[in-house]
Amino acid sequence: MAGSYATGKKKFSIYILLTYLVLILFILVTITPIIWGLITSLKGTGEINRFPPTIFPEKLDLSNFYKVIFLSNFTTYFKNSCLVTFLCILASTIIAGHAAYAISRFNIKFKEQMMFGILMTSMVPAVALLIPLYIMGVKAGIYNTGFMLVLVYTSWRTPMLTWILKGFFDSVPIAIEEAAMIDGCTRLRTFYTIVIPMSQPGIVSSALLTAVYVWNDFLVSFTFVTKEELRTVSVGLYSYITQYGVQWGELLSAVMITIIPIIILFVLLQRKFVDGMAAGAVKG
Score class of each variant (00 low, 15 high):
residue 83 L to F: 15
residue 138 V to P: 03
residue 73 N to M: 01
residue 267 V to C: 04
residue 76 T to Q: 04
residue 237 L to K: 04
residue 72 S to E: 00
residue 17 L to C: 11
residue 190 T to M: 02
residue 52 P to E: 05
residue 108 I to E: 06
residue 52 P to V: 06
residue 139 K to D: 02
residue 187 R to V: 12
residue 52 P to D: 04
residue 42 L to P: 11
residue 272 K to R: 11
residue 78 F to M: 02
residue 220 V to P: 00
residue 161 L to N: 10
residue 63 S to N: 08
residue 217 D to F: 10
residue 110 F to L: 12
residue 150 V to S: 01
residue 249 G to P: 02
residue 117 G to R: 01
residue 36 W to H: 14
residue 33 P to H: 10
residue 258 T to Y: 11
residue 248 W to A: 01
residue 3 G to S: 13
residue 233 V to M: 02
residue 120 M to D: 00
residue 204 V to N: 00
residue 237 L to I: 03
residue 209 L to I: 09
residue 238 Y to Q: 06
residue 115 M to F: 09
residue 154 T to D: 06
residue 67 K to V: 11
residue 165 L to M: 04
residue 171 S to E: 13
residue 224 F to P: 10
residue 68 V to W: 08
residue 111 K to C: 05
residue 173 P to E: 05
residue 226 T to E: 14
residue 103 I to Y: 08
residue 279 A to M: 12
residue 59 K to S: 12
residue 217 D to R: 12
residue 50 R to N: 11
residue 229 E to H: 14
residue 59 K to Q: 07
residue 223 T to H: 02
residue 271 R to A: 08
residue 12 F to T: 15
residue 125 P to W: 06
residue 159 P to A: 12
residue 193 T to R: 12
residue 208 L to P: 00
residue 10 K to F: 14
residue 178 E to F: 11
residue 126 A to R: 02
residue 41 S to Q: 10
residue 122 S to A: 11
residue 162 T to S: 09
residue 63 S to H: 06
residue 171 S to K: 09
residue 33 P to E: 11
residue 105 R to K: 07
residue 140 A to I: 03
residue 109 K to I: 11
residue 254 A to K: 05
residue 42 L to M: 12
residue 259 I to P: 04
residue 190 T to R: 05
residue 49 N to A: 15
residue 118 I to W: 10
residue 260 I to C: 03
residue 159 P to C: 08
residue 3 G to K: 12
residue 253 S to C: 04
residue 69 I to D: 10
residue 38 L to E: 03
residue 124 V to S: 03
residue 11 K to T: 14
